[in-house]
Design a protein around this nucleic acid. Sequence first.
DNA 1: TTATAGTTGGGACATTTGTCCTTTTATAAG
DNA 2: CTTATAAAAGGACAAATGTCCCAACTATAA
Lengths: 185, 185
Amino acid sequence: MIRINPDFLSYVEVLVEKHLDYFTLEKYTAKEVVLKQDKRYHSLFIIKSGITKCYLSDENGKDFIQEFLGEGMEFGELEVFSRKLSFCTIEAISEVELYKISHQNYTQLLENDPIFNRLVMKSLAAKIAYKAPRHSFQQSYSIEENILKLKKSYPNFDKVFSKKDIANYLGITVRSLNRTLNNLN
Amino acid sequence: MIRINPDFLSYVEVLVEKHLDYFTLEKYTAKEVVLKQDKRYHSLFIIKSGITKCYLSDENGKDFIQEFLGEGMEFGELEVFSRKLSFCTIEAISEVELYKISHQNYTQLLENDPIFNRLVMKSLAAKIAYKAPRHSFQQSYSIEENILKLKKSYPNFDKVFSKKDIANYLGITVRSLNRTLNNLN
DNA sequence: TTATAGTTGGGACATTTGTCCTTTTATAAG
DNA sequence: CTTATAAAAGGACAAATGTCCCAACTATAA
């Protein structure tokens, strides 16, 4: 449920020491927005600590949460390759520490540091490999089965996240979430 | 609905000429399976022509179609980075021509050809950027709205694909698909 | 030709999920 | 302390979707 990538974070921390001018450390408090959907940015972020949510909003104001991101996850990197506007919003859930790096310096690292290059590839591949089965399962199974699955991987998910966030993650309404949680007791 | 990547294909065709020993050209007929879920492979493929479907099967035998892949799309590449078993099945829908390359040679190219490296990054990023809104939309909107969207991007989708494939792509039953198609007339 | 299996189409009903609304509780603001 | 605002919980009903059928129509193999 909360995605992490410790290997990537470790290596980024090495790079932070090596290229002092490439990275800046920023802090955000809960509910602060780091990136806004449909805006253009020239930097991206790697999470040092804390949790954010990554979501898409549609024209009706409904939000759909793509993932909860924890330490070592990067975001805003897709726009380096696509050169398009940010396609999701990133919002802090807890207090968060982020390494910020410009597209330009990021590209430098990609081109000159093969280890970094490989880790970014892995991180992209992992995002795909994670999304696919989630989409599949969420689409094909009942709400009850989806909640049971969530409970298994995150026994106390209902303590950490608001009901609204959980519902937006599962693509359902809070009403349906409550109903199903009741049936499980 | 059918994903393509002509830029990638163009460059692969350049590489095919340059590294004659890296690539082999294979042909598959409709309904042939190229990769099976949960098997280990040591090669991956780039589509030169034709259409395949990429799907996940669950323990109940339900299939969920991730994407329809057309020219220039690669598949089997995620396993180069994750070193895991194939996480989906790839099946030819029409007659298909594929360039096959071993993980080893692919890695060689990634490490020694910066243009290729960049194109692979782009291709991975595009897969993520495509999956996210699709998942979001499919989850949040009615079947009718999903079909209308499909119709807009692929006016004759119901001629090219079987009802079952369309239903598996939308994560619904054929019954619901038929019902909704009727309501639209 | 016949047999067989796969695809399409749809009726009838059950179940799931959403919508709308009200109440309660918690939290923040003045 | 009071007021405002947001989060949580759930009742009642409506709408969407799935399940289980059966029938008609291919296509294909024997």
